[in-house]
Amino acid sequence: MKILLATPEPPASDYGNSVTARRWAGIFRDLGHEVRVCLGHTDGEYDALVALHAGRSADVIRRFAAQRPGAPVVIGLTGTDLYPDFATSGVDPAVLDMADRFVALQSHGVRQLPPRLRPRARVITQSLSTVEARPSRMDCFEVAFLAHVRPVKDPLLPAQAVRLLPADSRIVLTHAGGARDEESERAVAAEAAENPRYHWLGALPRTEALGVLARSRLLVLASQHEGGANVVTEALALGVPVISTRIPGSTGLLGDDYPGYFPVGDAEALAAALYAVEQNRDGFHDVLKERCGALRHLAEPDRERNAWSELWSGLRAEARALHPSPTAPGRRGQQ
């Protein structure tokens, strides 16, 4: 198949949607498909569309459906589609109806869809290929925070939390992630200048950011919403335990009963959790490491590749059932 893969971020950027798009494109090519990754719509005789972000890719989806009626449309659901809900996010219900398949990055994402559309959804967790192990720093207890400086990531909350740590704590927070505007850049730079426990590295190449994560003793996710954060599955792949806000994007990956959650926006609760991990209070660090190790299989590349293979096979089977002639067009998402 010739697949058009649309992303709302520049394909070469280090933002989450672009990272996901590049990985998906590699998987599709491994499966024998031809792929064009683009920002927006590109005219051409494509056999299928995969669109990341139902809201921001809505025009691409409408145009493709109009130009290629019957060709399958797959929508990758992002955090800003799903949460708090589609209506609040401004997602057009008519665009959702155009999808033959939805891909959610964690199991709770499917719950956000209207019941009649849920049978079209597949959960495909993200993966990470092997990354070279890195030794942990010995001069501190390093905690990684990999997030761009955007309000939804609550980027200064972890820095506020480490300010609250007891004097005997050796925790240092390393933040890798770029700022999208000058005001945000000034805010994080000022925090880094005043807070000795907070080191902001700015935007890093992906390999360097993964190196920071690989050497760290813990990952913090402070987001208000996530569709299924790349960095959580990256941490699972690297064996790095996670402390996260209790949001569906994380509970859908780590489990509702995972012990390493704190309330959204609660710096004091985060500080208490960080200190408990550092001190391994009641074996807390060991428990988190064991739980994350048991979930490592979720981040295996073969698992993600096989899930996509099954998705395409299912669409082909449905097309053959509805249109026995091999030259007939596919279907338009009826279940």
Rank of each mutant, 00 (worst) to 15 (best):
R180N: 12
R68G: 05
P326H: 13
L218S: 00
G40M: 06
A192Y: 01
P115I: 11
A58K: 05
I3P: 00
R215P: 02
L236V: 03
L270R: 08
E290L: 11
T233E: 04
H225T: 13
A276C: 11
D92N: 00
R101Q: 13
G70A: 09
A190C: 05
F64Q: 09
P324L: 14
G32R: 06
A161N: 04
A144L: 09
V212N: 00
K153I: 03
R291D: 01
R197Q: 06
T327W: 12
L77N: 02
D47E: 14
D92E: 08
Y15S: 14
W24I: 13
A237N: 06
Q279D: 00
Q67N: 12
L315D: 07
V74I: 15
A317G: 04
A121D: 09
R163K: 14
S129Q: 14
L270V: 07
R186T: 09
D43R: 13
V152A: 10
A54D: 11
V95H: 00
V149T: 12
V277H: 10
R303C: 09
R116G: 08
L39P: 01
L311Y: 04
I243T: 08
D286W: 02
E318C: 05
T88I: 01
G211R: 07
D286T: 08
P10C: 11
R118D: 06
H323A: 15
A214I: 08
A189P: 03
A276Q: 14
V74M: 10
V143Q: 07
A12H: 15
H199R: 15
H53A: 02
R137Q: 14
L288I: 04
A65K: 08
E290V: 03
T251I: 09
T88L: 07
